[in-house]
Amino acid sequence: MSSLGGAPWYILEFGDELVYFTPYTTTLLILALVFTVLALVSRPERQVEALFGTDAIYAKDTTVDQMRFRRFMAIACGCASMGAVVTGDLFNFTLFVALVGITNVGIVAAVKNRHVQNAAFQYGLVALTATVPLFAGAGIVAATTGTLSIVALASGTVPQAPFFARALLCLGVVGEGMAPFYAAKAEMFRAPGAPYVIMCSLSSLLIFLRVAEVVMVI
């Protein structure tokens, strides 16, 4: 671990659960924090759209009711990704990642638009399926090495986690972080509310970055 994410600055222990801060995880944590604060303070934008076949344009408004729910989901998503990037326990990591998946669905699902809801549902199916490899990966790591602590796994005192388990973990994270790929289908961007939609991409990005570190050290 000393060479990958940098030496840990600080390890916070709650019994066998632990949270550690290396330069890498701290950077990710700060980024999650910054964007969560942005989601907290900024009002959603009003998307300008042209009516098809005419010269008319109009700006979409977001209702307060909808906004409240989506903002809550965006903040929950930010908190979940903060948890995912700093946690030192593999199973907690998978739980936080699963939480990111749920909240990502929540952020877009509040929009009353058939296309958006369809995209959210399909994404939700993928995210739900992805919990299988995610938990299975963590389970196999626990079975083969006898520990779930990333610090212990990185220290080299326990056997290395099998390649299969690491591949399962990656697969799970890819599935949970699918939202931006659905975004590429442009359906999700019919949903106004940039500060919240951006949280989808950010959280998936952060869990990708974190799992890259995790599979390298365990």
Binding site: F91, L95, A98, L99, G101, I102, V105, G106, A109, K112, R114, Q117, N118, A120, F121, G124, L125, A127, L128, T131, F135, A138, G139, A142
Partner: peptide, 24 residues
């Protein structure tokens, strides 16, 4: 200890998706 949170997360996702399905 590990199955419980896994189960809870699964159920939560399932409930959320069913709600979306109803709306959709």
């Amino acid at each position: 200890a590990l199955i419980l949170p896994g189960l809870v997360v699964g159920i939560a996702e399932l409930l959320a998706l069913s709600q979306i399905y109803l709306h959709k």
